[in-house]
Design a protein around this nucleic acid. Structure first.
Length: 433
RNA sequence: GUGGCUGUAGCUCAAUCGGUUAGAGCGCCGGACUGUGGCUCCGGAGGUUGCGGGUUCAAUUCCCGUCAGCCACCCCA
C-alpha cells in the first residue's frame, strides 16, 4: 500500500462510480418530481462565511487555509450559508415558495468513522418562503421517496419527526428555562443509546434538577405517538396551536400514503441550534447505521446569514450512509455491460473491416469494443463475455466477401448472418434493453 | 481532540509454542483451444507480513513508536 487517498477521502473505482451516479440520478429524478430546480455554488468560500454564524464546533472542523492572495478561505462544510447568500441576492425577484436543490461535495476535517468521512456528497433540498406544515411534509415526502426509489420499504427505514416548538413548550411546562432546556435536549438526544438512569443523573447535574423532575423531563423524549403527544400536551395545558403544525404535517404524510414510514418521536433533537420548528431524521429500521438524512425548519437563519427574513425548511442527505444502505439492502442495480457489441476479427486480415465497422456503429450511437491486437476467436469471445456484451459480431474472410457479419447472441448462443448495412441501421439499443 | 481493537497477495483469509523457502480460494495473465465465449483442467505472475525501531540464535508472531482502518467519546452539515 504505497499510496492511497488522504484519510477520509475516496478513490471511486468504476463499481463505486456506478453506484455514485445511480445515487445522483435518483436525487435529480426525485427532486424533479417535486418541482425543485438545481443550483450550485463554489466549493471554496471565504472563511468568514462559516465563522459568522456557525458554531465553534463546525469552525474547528473546517478545512481552512490562506490562499495565495492572503485570503482566509475554507472548503465548504455545508451549503446553507451559500444558499442564504444566493437567495438573498435575488430574494425579491424569486417567486415564492422557492424550491431549490443541490448536490455539493462537502468537507469536514474530523476523525473518520464508518458512514462518516472527511468528504461526501449531499443532496440538499430547501423550501423557502412558506412557513406552513405542508412545506415540511413536502420535504419529508421527498426524502422518503429518494430512499424508496432504491427499492427500500418501511421494513428498511423510517422517519422520526419532532417539533422544536412542541418540545420547548413541554419542557417549559416542566419549569425549565433557557440553559436547562439546552441541557435537556442533550440528554433526550441520547435516549435510544444510553441507559435512562445515566441520563437522569446527567440531567440532574447539568440542569440542577431533582431526580423526579429530571425523570419527568426525560419522559418528554419518550413520546412516540400522536396519542402520547396529545396526552402530554393536554396534561401540560399547552396551547393547541403549538402542536397543530406537527399534527398537520403527520396527517399530510398520511394522506400521501406514507403513514407507514413516519412516526412522531420527541427524542429527535437535531444538533443544530438554528432549527426552529419541525425537525426530522431518516434512519435504517434496524438502527445499525447513522441517520441517512436529517433536516428541519430553520425560520430566522436566512435573515441571520443573508439579511432576508424568509421562513425555510430543508434537509441534507449524504451519499455515504445512503450508499451503504443501498449496497446492503437495496435492489441490485441491473447488471449491464459497458458495451452492446463486441466485434471479432477472425483473421488479422479482417482487422481493417472491423475497425471500419466499429466506427460506423459508434457513429450510430452503439457501444462497441473490439480486441486491440490480433487474437484467436476464442480469446476474443472470452473478452466479449467478460465485458458482458450482448452480441458478438464476427467478421471473417467469408463475411467480408458477402458484405455481411455473423451476429452471435452471447446469452443464447444463437447466430445469424446479417448484411453489414442492416447491422448499422438496426436500432441503437438491442431488443433486450 | 481522547480512549479501545485491528493491520499478511488486487480481494477474502491461513501460517501449531517465536522456528526451514509465508500458503489457499477468488480475481488477473498464459496454455489446453489459429472460425466460437461462459464450464473444466494445467501453468504463471503477484508479498519490504502497513512503516520504523527494539528484544532474540531466530519475529507475521513479543515490546515500543508511527501511520492507516474500525469502534466508542466528542460532534453531526
Amino acid at each position: 500500500m504505497h499510496s492511497q487517498a488522504l484519510p477520509g477521502f475516496r478513490d471511486f473505482f468504476p463499481d463505486e462510480t456506478t453506484l455514485r451516479n445511480r445515487i445522483f440520478t435518483v436525487w435529480r429524478d426525485v427532486a424533479a418530481r417535486y418541482g425543485f430546480e438545481e443550483y450550485d455554488g463554489p466549493p471554496l468560500e471565504p472563511l468568514e462565511l462559516y465563522t459568522q454564524k456557525s458554531g465553534e464546533e463546525i469552525v474547528s472542523q473546517l478545512y481552512a487555509f490562506e490562499d495565495k492572495g492572503g485570503r482566509a478561505v475554507a472548503l465548504r462544510p455545508e451549503m446553507t450559508p451559500t444558499l442564504a447568500r444566493m437567495v438573498a441576492q435575488r430574494a425579491r425577484a424569486l417567486k415564492k415558495p422557492i424550491r431549490w436543490f443541490t448536490m455539493p461535495q462537502l468537507f469536514r476535517y474530523e476523525r473518520q468513522q464508518r458512514g462518516r468521512l472527511r468528504e461526501h456528497f449531499q443532496l440538499n433540498m430547501d423550501l423557502i418562503g412558506e412557513a406552513g406544515p405542508l412545506a415540511d411534509a413536502e420535504l419529508i415526502a421527498a426524502a422518503v421517496d429518494v430512499v424508496r426509489a432504491f427499492g427500500l420499504t418501511a421494513a428498511d427505514f423510517r422517519v422520526r419527526i419532532s417539533d422544536r416548538r412542541v418540545a420547548q413548550a413541554l419542557l417549559a411546562a416542566h419549569g425549565l428555562t433557557g440553559p436547562q432546556i439546552v441541557a435537556a435536549y442533550a440528554q433526550i438526544d441520547k435516549l435510544d443509546r444510553d441507559p435512562p438512569e445515566d441520563l437522569v443523573q446527567n440531567l440532574m447535574r447539568t440542569a440542577s434538577l431533582e431526580e423526579h423532575a429530571a425523570a419527568r423531563v426525560l419522559a418528554v423524549g419518550d413520546i412516540r405517538s400522536i396519542d402520547a403527544l396529545r396526552a402530554a400536551v393536554s396534561d401540560a395545558s399547552i396551547d393547541p396551536d403549538t402542536v397543530s403544525p406537527l399534527l398537520e404535517c403527520i396527517e399530510a404524510l398520511a394522506s400521501m400514503g406514507l403513514a407507514d414510514y413516519v412516526a412522531i418521536d420527541m427524542s429527535v433533537v437535531r444538533g443544530l441550534a438554528y432549527y426552529t420548528g419541525i425537525v426530522f431524521e431518516l434512519f435504517d429500521a434496524r438502527r445499525t447505521m447513522r441517520a441517512i438524512c436529517g433536516g428541519g425548519r430553520y425560520d430566522g437563519l436566512l435573515e441571520a446569514l443573508g439579511g432576508i427574513d424568509l421562513p425555510a425548511t430543508g434537509f441534507g442527505m449524504g451519499d455515504v450512509v445512503l450508499g451503504e444502505l443501498v449496497r446492503e439492502r437495496g435492489q441490485a442495480s441491473e447488471v449491464t455491460g459497458a458495451v452492446d457489441l463486441f466485434l471479432v476479427a477472425v483473421t488479422s486480415e479482417d482487422v481493417p473491416a472491423v475497425l471500419g465497422l466499429a466506427h460506423e456503429l459508434r457513429d450510430a450511437g452503439r457501444r462497441v469494443e473490439y480486441a486491440l491486437k490480433a487474437q484467436s476467436v476464442a480469446k476474443q469471445l472470452k473478452l466479449a463475455s467478460a465485458r458482458a456484451a450482448s452480441q458478438a459480431v464476427l467478421i471473417g474472410p467469408d463475411e467480408r466477401a458477402r458484405r455481411e457479419a455473423l451476429v452471435r447472441d452471447l446469452a443464447t448462443g444463437e447466430e445469424r448472418r446479417m448484411a453489414l448495412s442492416r447491422l448499422v441501421e438496426s436500432p441503437s439499443r438491442p431488443a433486450d434493453r
